[in-house]
Simulated scan of single mutants.
Amino acid sequence: MDNSPDVHICEVAPRDGLQNLDVIVPTGAKCELISAIVAAGVSEVDAGSFVPATVVPQFGDVGAVVAHALTHKSTTIGAVVPNVKGAERALAAGVNSMYFVISASETHNRANVRRTIEEQLEAFRVVRARINAQKAPERPHLVGAVATAFGCSMEGDVSEAAVCRLVQGFAEAGADEIGLADTVGYGTPTQVKRIVRAVRNETGPKMMLRLHLHDTLGAGLANVVAGLEADVRRFDAAVSGLGGCPFAPGARGNIVTEDLVFMLERMGLSTGIDLDRLMATREILARHVEQKHLTGHLHEAGIPRVLRRVA
């Protein structure tokens, strides 16, 4: 019997949640956070980013953090790789999944990685070849992540055609999965459904899709529902709503994992995640992260006693 949950959630707080903070979270705290997330039943964790510490000091310890994360054998441990060198480091570390990000907005992509979209796609092809050269059991899952798929803080609207061109490039280069990211949180439910369906038409029904949503303008959970209605069952989220985009100053972070789990379970969709244990991760973060960075409706209001049994 298939006991997999109805909805798969990847926890991104250890990477996307921490990368823009103005304080360096100690390595031990990052490891403690990942262990607590795994203990809550989360089956995939984005543990860090293989970028130079001179660019993102938060990830100067990514090797140690990923090594700890990989001790949790039942959980998929992934990392962002911005280029071929980062991918080679991730391969050497033994990650289970790689997230290779390219923006659908040319301006955002140049600002983010200092390359054109086509230059990034060529790097993605090289990474695919590097992975294919590994022995089959050691090949990580490769996600082609489309940033700014629902809008850009620099260009404004991003066309459906631009998103589909990048998706096509990822698919032709051998992506195992496509992620659509609302990097700056400008997306709306109608837009999410429209773009997801356009991408489905581009890739066919067999390509795995996920949504990475932000809550900048308060539409995050509404966009999850839109994704569900478009048959997406894989979502990224961050405990306590950590995160944001450096090119959207002041923007709120990722959708809140705790709120997402509560909503999905109330909708009758299983996640496999223990909400009480997930809520407890706030205590770890609060020791190192200012309260202003920690959000979440459940944390603010509490879970009403009459709704404690959310299944």
Rank of each mutant, 00 (worst) to 15 (best):
E118L: 12
E119I: 00
Q120V: 03
A123V: 00
A123Q: 14
F124G: 04
R125V: 10
V126C: 07
V126M: 12
V127Q: 06
V127Y: 08
V127H: 04
A129K: 14
R130I: 00
R130G: 00
I131S: 08
N132A: 15
A133R: 15
K135A: 15
A136L: 08
A136S: 09
A136I: 11
P137C: 01
P137R: 13
E138H: 14
R139H: 10
H141S: 07
L142Q: 03
L142V: 01
L142M: 08
V143P: 02
G144L: 04
A145E: 05
V146T: 01
T148D: 07
A149K: 11
A149W: 07
A149C: 01
F150S: 08
F150L: 04
C152E: 09
S153I: 01
S153L: 00
G156K: 11
G156L: 05
D157V: 13
S159L: 12
S159A: 12
S159M: 05
A161S: 13
A161K: 13
A162C: 06
V163T: 05
C164K: 14
C164L: 09
L166V: 13
V167G: 10
V167D: 00
V167P: 01
V167S: 06
Q168M: 07
G169W: 06
G169E: 06
F170M: 14
F170L: 11
F170P: 04
F170A: 05
F170R: 11
A171D: 13
E172H: 12
E172K: 10
E172T: 13
E172P: 00
A173M: 03
G174P: 02
G174E: 15
A175G: 07
A175P: 05
D176V: 02
D176A: 01
E177D: 06
E177N: 03
E177F: 07
I178R: 01
I178Y: 06
G179K: 03
G179A: 10
L180A: 03
A181P: 03
D182V: 01
T183S: 08
T183Y: 04
T183I: 02
V184I: 13
G185A: 07
G185N: 09
Y186E: 02
Y186Q: 15
P189R: 15
T190A: 15
T190P: 00
Q191L: 14
V192F: 04
V192D: 08
V192H: 11
R194T: 13
R197C: 08
A198T: 14
E202C: 11
T203S: 02
T203Q: 05
T203V: 14
G204N: 14
M207L: 15
M207F: 13
M207P: 14
M208C: 11
M208E: 15
L209E: 04
L209N: 06
R210F: 13
R210V: 03
L211F: 09
H212P: 10
H212E: 08
L213Y: 12
L213V: 10
H214K: 15
D215F: 02
T216G: 11
G218P: 12
G218N: 11
G218Q: 10
N223P: 09
A226M: 08
A226L: 09
A226F: 00
G227A: 02
G227Q: 08
G227D: 00
G227Y: 01
